Amino acid sequence: MTSQIRLLDRTAVITGAAGGIGRAIAESLARRGCNLALADIDAKGLEVTARTMAASGVRVSTHRLDVSDAEAIAALPAQVLASHPGVDLLFNNAGVALGGSFEDVSERDFDWLLSINLQGVVRMTRAFLPLLRRSDDARLVNLSSLFGLIAPPGQTAYAASKFAVRGFSESLRHELAGSSVGVTVVHPGGVNTAIARNARIHANASPQEIERSRVLFQRALTMPPQVAGEIIVRAVERRRARILVGRDARIAATLERLAPISHWRLLERISKSKASRRPPATRSGRPARTGA
């Protein structure tokens, strides 16, 4: 194998491709001449992504898919092969968010999140691994999260799923060592996608609490998805086993390694220090003028 993966004329399957990081990954791959099989539950968003890719001249197929549906996933490889000669890359990107403490979140909602964020990854991997093995140079890319490195309060379900994706990916990497299939796990930090706006909040939350949670979460999502997508694809090209996307992910990974128990207190101090340095807001929401 060469030191860098050649993406020209390869085929990549991407879940969650209707927007956000999934669409950005598709754009970065298309610029490199990689053909695309785009999957998402959002059919309209998929068509927008597909139209965006059309100018690149690559082969694009779209597949409406609910990654919590085991039968739909099992049927997907045959559908992809109807449009493409094979599969060389699989990006398990689809995911959802759920806010609330463990005691507030219902078992039904907890299981709903795991069915998408974890079982979707496992089932997609099981379905497509035989096709990836047929490739002479394949890559499985699983999207974990900043919350697959650290686990803040109010994110028990999401953190559980993303730590599990991390563990699944790292174990599978060892199992596939020496084969033509490499495994990459990605930990994006605050990427500006719709995940906060679309997140479920526990049933006991008031409308005010829901809005406050979404606003606070959205403020932390600052990196444009196009930047994140390019970082991910560039690192996949270089066969990186682990990708930390954003300064926040790099800081969290370092603190967790240095202080595996007390890192959350350190992060809270950093957050409070940043907040205290922000200019006070006026009633309009704009920073107030300070100084002369």
Rank of each mutant, 00 (worst) to 15 (best):
M1I: 06
M1P: 13
Q4G: 08
R6P: 11
L8W: 10
G19C: 10
I21W: 06
I25S: 02
I25M: 04
A26Y: 10
E27W: 13
E27T: 15
S28R: 07
L36W: 05
L38F: 12
L38E: 11
D40T: 04
I41E: 09
D42H: 12
A43H: 10
A55E: 09
A55S: 11
R59K: 15
T62N: 00
E71F: 06
A74D: 15
P77W: 05
A78E: 15
L81Y: 00
S83W: 11
V87M: 09
L90Y: 02
A97K: 01
A97N: 14
S101W: 03
D104T: 14
D109V: 00
D109P: 09
F110P: 13
L118W: 04
V122Y: 07
R123V: 05
P130M: 11
L131D: 14
A138D: 06
S144R: 09
S144K: 11
T156I: 09
A160M: 10
V186Y: 04
G189F: 06
N192G: 06
I195S: 07
S206P: 07
R212V: 01
V215W: 07
F217C: 08
A220L: 15
A220W: 04
L221V: 10
R240W: 09
A241Y: 13
L244C: 11
D248M: 05
E256G: 04
I261W: 13
S262P: 01
R265F: 14
L267M: 13
R269I: 11
P287M: 00
A288R: 09
